[in-house]
Design a protein around this nucleic acid. Structure first.
Lengths: 135, 135
DNA sequence: CTATATGCAAATAGTTTGCACGGAT
DNA sequence: ATCCGTGCAAACTATTTGCATATAG
């Protein structure tokens, strides 16, 4: 969905600041706050830090943006998308998305615990293909 | 392993403060910083916040303690243990551990991406058995 | 025009650090 | 006597808030 549309759907005005934040997230795929600040200070220097914080929080509330946390790493933000797992390369730190079915695991958990599984957040530590080929 | 032993193995002196921190983690299973502070202020009021921070960081460095992060939630600390996934109840917020094989998923990822999988961090959002039974 | 969003500065929260003292070997 | 760990206060970093102004619809 185009970003203007995405904002309207969520009853947020399409300000240049918001569009810039969304563009930045899109461009990065996964961006830390630091990434966002750095990129924005290049293309929209007057966009203030409080506006970044306020809008990220708002967009997370509305589920337009997701916050992804990895052990021992900074938090990342991404535009919400279909269910996927994260592959994070321990060498170059790049993050890839990967689509995978997890129903069988959920089912196993439900059978063995009696709990009801609602969703999941999966992250795999990898060495990516590119890094492997240069080792 | 008893905590005194655990500390010695990692070349840390077994001070009352460190033992208290480890006991607290053990007692909670998974504890936020806030949990830790609250419990410690009850049983060891003079133990300072900087000592908590310093020791948690040190123990994480030495892999005695692991930091676990969940989207939209505070970070948790746990004494490092065998590979397991986390089940977090969205109603009562309790965290259970669950042991599961993930080799088949790793294999699928490796086949489809060409990456090498080193490890994983899996978290499932659930409604736990207890909460289910009182709904 | 009106409600909402922004920027700035100040407030608040979270974490780390420097240093002098105290306890264990 | 020496080394390491602790507590305290101060420093630093991260995040949120209040308010006057600007702007999208």
């Amino acid at each position: 969905m185009p970003h203007i549309q995405l904002l309207k759907t969520n009853e947020l005005k399409a300000t240049p600041q918001r569009l810039c934040i969304l563009d930045t997230l899109q461009e990065c795929g996964h961006a830390t706050l630091e990434d966002i600040q750095k990129i924005i200070s290049g293309k929209f220097p007057t966009l203030s830090l409080s506006t970044i914080y306020r809008n990220l929080n708002e967009m997370i509330q509305k589920d337009m943006v997701s916050e992804v946390k990895f052990a021992n790493k900074k938090d990342y933000f991404e535009i919400s998308k279909d269910k996927h797992v994260h592959l994070i390369c321990q060498k170059c730190k790049k993050i890839e998305d990967f689509e995978i079915q997890t129903d069988d695991i959920s089912k196993k958990i439900e059978e063995q615990t009696g709990d009801k599984v609602l969703g999941d957040t999966l992250c795999f530590d990898v060495i990516c293909k590119d890094c492997l080929s240069t080792m």
